[in-house]
Write a protein that binds this DNA or RNA. Structure first.
Lengths: 340, 340
DNA sequence: CTGTTAGCGCGTTCAA
DNA sequence: TTGAACGCGCTAACAG
């Protein structure tokens, strides 16, 4: 693709050196190891750098030093606000360390993820953050072969490739189900995203089932729905479930904005929440705090996951320690509001 | 930062060449210009590439060819869903061209934007997308000096540094105001984000005023509020305005989720919308289609702006044309719903 | 069609 | 504290 400078020649380090009447290495040091130079020389060089408008060439620097200052992050969807919190956390921490963020979304596809990992490795990223704990065999193998630190988020991987930073979808779904039971709901419905190709949804469903088992309740297929994302899906799932299983008194929407969609539908139909039907959501989206009634949900450490992932990468990069697999469970909390 | 391969040596192009018993250039060509090779050689090389697990080193490639395949994008906020649509559009188009996206957020600060531009130029990005039409003098000068294509979005810049792809905030705000007047509202309030340091908010306010002038109405400071972002701000602004200027019959919330916050507040207070107060929003957030009542708003081509920005960059990169300043106005539309 | 030569801009290493 | 030589992994330009 594009020539870096169609318009002319960039100022190189050697140009600065000549302009300041020092060697190239002195310029290099003034920029990277200023302590090694006399104050006089350092000042001269840095002034010259500014005067001639020199912009360091990290790409050459990276090649020469066999290091990189770019981290790659792959999320299922850039537009989904849940992931943007992780991205933000990651970007913030990386920035303070002078590391750049290469971003891409996989569209929930393992094949696309593999292609992106390929591309990122070709860019010689010095670390990787994946919102995924399942990968194609080739992807996993490439990452291992690259020997760079990598953090898997999105769920607590049983056997991380390298490191894992997340909460447990299983536990979160289980605890919320138990919590609803504790508030007296006898027939708790469960709605999640399609579990096919979505390990996180699968874990949540398992957690729901585990809670039923713990409660000594029967599984009832009529109380479970797998749907696509979106406000409309949540609305449909609720209406449908209440028709086919009229005994349902609470629904736990374990995904995205499903709960909000259901709540709006209830408003439209003038169904009282929680009297007629109780609703609980998964993520603490901003909006859940402002609906009428406000929605009970889980509070997941999305931003913190991004931050801690970046920190884990940076630490591993600095201390060239061997890749000791590490799991970091950041937990979650249940937020009680008026909808349950 | 991190060594690229703490664990061992990467397979280089020369290793592939030796394994396949050809010259290094033949490997390079098999990867970049396969048409130049005999089918036999090409197949041999590509097989070897796979067999030895070679991952191209774009960083070396970029250095040698003085090209880059990374585009940088800077948005005010990564978490704001408005911008994530632009990011998505940009990322999608770039991906099909094999170009990567370096992302960062400026936090609405010009100084931070300047620092990021610095960092991106050091990474030798081959193009830049900025959601901003105002920059520090040094930032603008650095960009020009770098000679790379750049797209400014977020508003239609009067004099773009290079190219501009956007809608006009001025026109959008003006048209919506006129539209509300056309629906019979006599006293139209206006709420926007703090205009200090925010050219887009400023343009919207100007558009509102221009509409009043066109309508032959007086400006009334009691009908204008500048607030911080957030659902709560919208709610407060509405309540406050209705107390101090009881004649207000419609409020145009020209920013973010302000309108949603106001609507929720109205629900809480049992104020009928639009009978007691009409509410119009700026962006067509997903949720505006699902509230009760659904919200009238503008539909802005956020995704398309990202896509077209990326396309503009790619085109400029391919044809080494001189930097002819270009403006692309993608327009907007008004979506009438029940709230007005 | 394939190979050879000469760098890209910088950091590492060693010498002064 | 400073400098010179060499090479990172790859591509451009030219030769065969």
């Amino acid at each position: 693709m594009g020539k870096t400078r169609p318009g002319g020649h960039a100022v190189r380090m050697i140009d600065v050196a000549r302009a300041a009447n020092v060697s190239l290495m002195t310029v290099s040091r003034a920029l990277k190891e200023p302590a090694l130079l006399s104050e006089e020389t350092r000042k001269l060089v840095l002034d010259t750098v500014r005067r001639v408008g020199y912009v360091p060439n990290h790409i050459a620097s990276n090649l020469a030093s066999a290091r990189s200052n770019v981290v790659g992050q792959i999320v299922p969807s850039i537009q989904n606000s849940l992931y943007s919190h992780s991205i933000k956390g990651c970007a913030d921490v990386l920035r303070t360390a002078g590391v750049q963020l290469l971003l891409a979304d996989s569209g929930y596809s393992l094949e696309d993820e593999e292609a992106l990992i390929d591309a990122f490795l070709a860019q010689r990223v010095c670390g990787l953050v994946l919102h995924n704990t399942v990968h194609t065999p080739r992807a996993a193998q490439m990452i291992r072969a690259a020997g760079i630190p990598i953090v898997e988020t999105g769920d607590l991987a049983r056997t991380p490739i390298d490191m894992a930073v997340s909460y447990s979808n299983f536990n979160a779904a289980k605890e919320m189900t138990l919590y609803l039971a504790g508030r007296g709901y006898k027939s708790i419905g469960f709605v999640c995203l399609t579990t096919k190709n979505n390990m996180r949804a699968r874990e949540r469903l398992k957690g729901y089932h585990a809670a039923l088992t713990a409660l000594g309740r029967e599984r009832n297929p009529g109380l479970v729905r797998e749907v696509e994302g979106g406000l409309t899906s949540g609305a449909h799932a609720m209406v449908d479930m209440m028709q086919r299983a009229p005994e349902v008194d609470a629904i736990f929407f374990a995904g995205d904005v499903l709960a909000v969609g259901a709540l709006f539908e209830a408003q439209r139909r003038n169904w009282k929440v929680p009297e007629r039907i109780a609703i609980a959501g998964f993520d603490d989206l901003d909006i859940l705090r402002h609906t009428v009634p406000r929605l009970t949900c889980l509070n997941l450490p999305r931003l913190e996951i991004g931050r801690r992932s970046a920190e884990a990468l940076l630490q591993r990069m600095r201390s060239n320690e061997p890749a000791v697999p590490t799991k970091l469970d950041l937990g979650f909390e249940i937020i009680q509001r008026e909808s349950t």
